[in-house]
Lab assay of single mutants.
Amino acid sequence: RLTVMSLQESGLKVNQPASFAIRLNGAKGKIDAKVHSPSGAVEECHVSELEPDKYAVRFIPHENGVHTIDVKFNGSHVVGSPFKVRVGEP
């Protein structure tokens, strides 16, 4: 089962990169992540390998409000996905 680490749920800033990590815990497959902005825009997140069992997911929010992040592994949502994060002040 995958572990999502260091996902900041609030206090993110517009046009500043945000990232979190995913540990695969021995699982093999493909991570896919997309961020949905409050206006409905959908953007791919950048996924990069940090070490053999750990990946970083990076995105840049372009507007204030609550964004939804879909994180999928081999086509299925990971536990807790979709995640909600707040950009800007509430």
Rank of each mutant, 00 (worst) to 15 (best):
P82H: 03
P52Y: 14
V78A: 12
S37F: 11
V42A: 12
L50H: 07
V85K: 13
L24N: 05
E9Y: 02
D32A: 11
L12I: 08
S39G: 09
F59I: 10
V66C: 13
D32Q: 09
R23H: 02
S76C: 09
E44D: 14
R1D: 10
P38M: 00
E63H: 12
G80V: 02
V79W: 03
E43H: 07
G65Y: 01
S39C: 03
L2Y: 07
L7W: 03
V35M: 11
A33H: 01
G29Y: 01
E63A: 10
F73Y: 05
V66A: 09
S6A: 15
K34M: 13
I22L: 05
I22V: 05
H46Y: 08
D70P: 09
M5A: 15
A27V: 10
V42R: 12
R23S: 10
R1F: 15
Q16I: 05
P52S: 12
D70H: 10
A18Q: 10
H67S: 12
R1C: 13
L2T: 10
P82C: 02
V47A: 12
V4M: 06
E51R: 06
E89L: 11
Q16F: 04
R23D: 06
F83Y: 09
A27K: 12
F59A: 02
F20T: 00
N64W: 04
K30Q: 13
P90C: 04
G80K: 09
V35H: 04
G11H: 03
H67M: 08
K84H: 09
I31H: 01
V85Q: 14
G80D: 12
F73V: 05
A18C: 15
D70N: 09
H36E: 08
P17T: 05
G80N: 12
P90F: 07
T3G: 14
G80Q: 10
Q16V: 12
L24K: 04
V79T: 13
N74H: 06
E63V: 12
P52N: 12
V71P: 00
Y55H: 14
G75D: 07
E49M: 14
V14K: 15
P17N: 12
F83D: 02
V57I: 07
E49Q: 13
V71F: 04
G88Q: 05
V66K: 15
K54W: 01
L2S: 07
L7H: 06
V87F: 02
H77Y: 12
S81D: 03
T68G: 13
A18R: 01
E89S: 12
K34T: 06
H46M: 10
S10H: 09
F83W: 05
H62A: 11
G11K: 12
V42W: 10
H36D: 05
N64T: 07
P17S: 11
G75M: 08
D53I: 07
V85R: 15
K30G: 05
G80S: 09
N15L: 08
T3D: 15
H36K: 14
Y55L: 10
G11F: 04
S37V: 12
N74K: 04
A41S: 08
S48K: 11
R86W: 10
R58L: 03
E51I: 13
S37L: 06
L12D: 00
V47L: 03
V4P: 07
R86Q: 14
V79A: 07
S39A: 05
S48R: 11
R1S: 03
S48F: 11
P38L: 01
P38C: 08
R58Q: 05
H62W: 11
K28E: 05
G88R: 06
K13E: 14
E43D: 03
A27L: 06
L50E: 10
I69E: 00
C45E: 03
P90W: 05
N15R: 02
I60N: 06
L24Q: 01
K84E: 14
Y55W: 11
E89D: 12
V42Q: 15
V14C: 03
S19Y: 01
F73P: 01
V87E: 01
R58S: 03
V79H: 08
D70M: 07
K13N: 03
D53T: 04
K54H: 04
H36Q: 02
E44N: 02
D53G: 08
S6H: 14
N74Q: 09
S19V: 05
V4D: 10
N15W: 02
H62V: 11
V14T: 05
